[in-house]
């Protein structure tokens, strides 16, 4: 089932389109890697798909409805994001941060109902962060913080999760842990999209790559095939044998 679909989507700023005629679909249970050089429009695509900025052309449908016709609250129940920026207030406790994921559902003062508490517990269970619930965000390592941010978006209980470079700033072990975690999340029936520069690692877990490059249509394909045929190397303008 298609959770998020674009129709001839053009993204960019003002009168400068970055990528045009994007026709892609994110299905339930799918784990997609969005690859491309810096500045090519990966973050812009994520921001546009999340409804933070307007498309320059075409349309996006989220759960079968047009994105621009949904209000922020309706979007927030279907689509969650993990961005590259850190939360502003770093003296929040881990549990408080995850609880904020229940913002679209909680009471008018943010009070949690039984249902909310259960979703939060599920998110903690899935991300395995029981031991740091009482810590403050500033006490966490980058890897722990990323897992906590993922727990927060899980608590938001959305079908679609978009993550902007979730593995940057992490060491190898944490990169692998986060990617494995996201794979498991997608297998539980959610549609997960990450932008990434980790070609080798993400090729093992992603079901599909969406490849973007300046001034050309988006390339869609299975990671291994795209690597073998040299498509990935072409997209990222890589030469030499390291890849």
């Amino acid at each position: 089932m298609s959770l998020l679909q674009t129709h001839n989507l053009t993204i960019g700023y003002g009168d400068k389109p970055l990528v045009s005629d994007i026709n892609v679909s994110l299905e339930s249970g799918q784990f997609i890697g969005l690859i491309g050089q810096n500045g090519v429009g990966k973050s812009t695509l994520i921001r546009t798909l999340a409804g933070f900025q307007e498309p320059l052309g075409g349309s996006i449908s989220l759960g079968g409805r047009e994105l621009i016709k949904l209000n922020p609250k309706e979007i927030s129940k279907k689509l969650g994001v993990v961005l590259t920026e850190k939360p502003t207030a770093l003296n929040l406790s881990v549990l408080e941060l995850i609880s904020l994921g229940r913002h679209p559902y909680s009471g008018w003062l943010g009070q949690l109902r039984q249902d909310d508490v259960e979703k939060i517990e599920e998110a903690i269970e899935q991300t395995q962060i029981h031991h740091i619930l009482n810590k403050r965000l500033y006490q966490l390592s980058d890897g722990q913080l990323q897992k906590v941010m993922i727990a927060r978006v899980l608590a938001q209980d959305t079908d679609v999760i978009l993550l902007d470079e979730p593995t940057s700033h992490l060491d190898l072990r944490n990169k692998i842990e986060v990617l494995d975690l996201l794979k498991k999340i997608s297998q539980s029936g959610k549609g997960v999209l990450i932008s990434t520069h980790e070609i080798h690692l993400s090729a093992k877990v992603c079901d599909m790559y969406w490849g973007v490059d300046f001034g050309v249509p988006m390339e869609i394909g299975v990671p291994d095939e795209m690597l073998l045929s040299g498509k990935v190397q072409e997209l990222l303008h890589l030469e030499g044998g390291a890849i």
Partner: peptide, 16 residues
């Protein structure tokens, strides 16, 4: 409280 995450996150949580 939602704004404590930053404006973009707050928006993604359904805040106008």
């Amino acid at each position: 409280n939602a704004l404590l995450l930053g404006e973009t996150y707050a928006e993604s949580l359904g805040l106008n």
